[in-house]
């Protein structure tokens, strides 16, 4: 799968949309747990997109893609858990 300009643009629009969504979520009257969960979900999706497409790690050795994804997942989960507790 070769990276294309179209793919990049699509990812960019997705990131913008997710950013606006997460900012919008903050102004809704959601329960804290739900807000944390939803916002962190957008963060996770965004970072995975950045890792795979912008950083081009989708075609990288599994080790490096895995390391980056694990790090992101770890940060998001750790933040989520400590915020909710």
């Amino acid at each position: 799968m070769q990276l294309t300009s179209r793919k990049l643009t699509g990812t960019w629009l997705l990131l913008i949309a997710l950013t606006l969504t997460s900012a919008g979520l903050g102004s809704l009257e959601l329960s804290e747990e739900l807000l944390v969960f939803l916002v962190l979900l957008t963060v996770l999706i965004k970072n995975y997109q950045i890792i795979d497409v912008f950083m081009e790690l989708k075609n990288a050795p599994l080790l490096w893609r895995g390391l980056m994804q694990c790090f992101t997942l770890f940060i998001v989960v750790a933040v989520g858990v400590t915020l909710i507790i």
């Binding site: 997460s22 900012a23 903050g26 804290e32 807000l35 916002v39 963060v43 940060i75 998001v76």
Partner: peptide
């Protein structure tokens, strides 16, 4: 990560 953590939540 920083934006939602500090500004949104």
């Amino acid at each position: 990560v920083l934006f939602p953590l500090i500004y949104v939540i």
